[in-house]
Design a binder for these strands. Structure first.
Lengths: 210, 210
DNA sequence: TTTTGCACTAACAATATTGTTAGTCATTAT
DNA sequence: ATAATGACTAACAATATTGTTAGTGCAAAA
């Protein structure tokens, strides 16, 4: 959808990969079927094993390709103390929201996998695990500075980050349910994303108001 | 954990049910193994089929038993226009948070199942689907009244509900990940729940401030 | 021309998983 | 005492699912 806008002529490997992303993200690891991936890609399921050896390694490849972007977008600017606090928060929310709208199933998938297969995720999580505390500390220092000058409330940086990701991620992770309950609120994806950006920025800014 | 605080002597059926809840909630439907349930309950897996016939019917039983509580706590007071707005929101957040802390895996499980097996969920969702719009409408009227009197901002009731459930549910659904990233923030569950209640009430109240 | 390597297929193997069934055992009703 | 009932077991059946392997065809290198 975002990788190859052209019509058809992808390599077999790419087509399998694309089908696998779809299958893994929507069904979860346990529910995903390698045969279904192969069928969707229009190849025999032996080809999947030929290129990726196992279901596990295939997933590794996919995770590897997604995780870098996620981290960059989540933490990139938040940890930079030279950017003004409010600008930083606003742009982080907006970028994060765009990324999630483009990869709506990724967070839910990751959350499930970390829970269901804690053994295999560490490699991926470890990378985030080291970086995050530094970002939180840096953000906390900046908040405290602003608070000292009476420019914002002295909120907990960890809680603030949790607020941001909760508000951004949940509606997309729970989309089918939210949509069913709130009368097709998310039907128009594009419009919803933009509305949510404004809403969430406002929610967080209000929270920071002294 | 909450059902039978006594030591051991439950019926076989109850032990299977309890093991099944655990297995379904943590692994998801596709990842859940009936043999694992039986083993955890200390019976042969034939017993599971003896009592519940199929994996599907077993899940039906479980969902049925959980869904009522979920709905009550989600919507109970929010739709009642006689309760003052701010009191209502505060108590809804607190009750909701308590329920989620007691059933931390339920929302994630429901969300996944609605996505993965849209065919089987309708019966359950339908019940919520009818009730929710009424609650949202009622809440919106009350917000508008308050706004007319300058007591709060004229926010969208649907968005507000989405904010509340996002802030309440997400941290628990993503617990292993959040905990890993935010340095064991959720290690002390009890304390975290209480801290989150305060935090979320404040976030929402600030959002409503004129 | 031969050989080498690569993408690929068809068939099979191994195992996991759900579900069934015939029959055992103990308790209770007749 | 006997029959009937319900909980239960062991073994099996059916199928789904992942993974393997031997071999085919083709294109490029030697």
């Amino acid at each position: 959808m975002q990788a190859n806008p052209q019509s058809e002529p992808q390599s077999t490997e790419e087509r399998i990969l694309e089908a696998a992303v779809q299958e893994f993200m929507t069904k979860g690891y346990a529910g995903a079927r390698t045969t279904a991936m192969a069928e969707a890609a229009g190849v025999t399921h032996a080809m999947l094993h030929y290129y990726f050896r196992t279901k596990d390694k295939l997933l590794d490849r996919i995770i590897e390709s997604k995780i870098g972007t996620l981290r960059d977008i989540m933490l990139a600017s938040l940890g930079d103390p030279t950017i003004p606090l409010f600008d930083k928060i606003k742009s982080t929310i907006e970028n994060h929201q765009d990324f999630i709208a483009a990869n709506p199933e990724l967070p839910r998938f990751m959350i499930n996998e970390v829970l269901n297969r804690p053994d295999r995720m560490p490699k991926v999580i470890e990378r985030l695990k080291h970086h995050t505390p530094l970002v939180v500390q840096s953000l906390q220092r900046q908040i405290d500075e602003y608070a000292d000058r009476g420019l914002c409330r002295r909120v907990d940086a960890g809680m603030l980050m949790l607020d941001i990701v909760s508000l951004n991620i949940f509606p997309f992770s729970a989309k089918p349910m939210v949509n069913a309950l709130l009368g097709g609120m998310m039907e128009n994806s594009q419009a919803f994303v933009e509305a949510r950006k404004i809403e969430n920025v406002e929610t967080i800014m209000k929270k920071l108001q002294p």
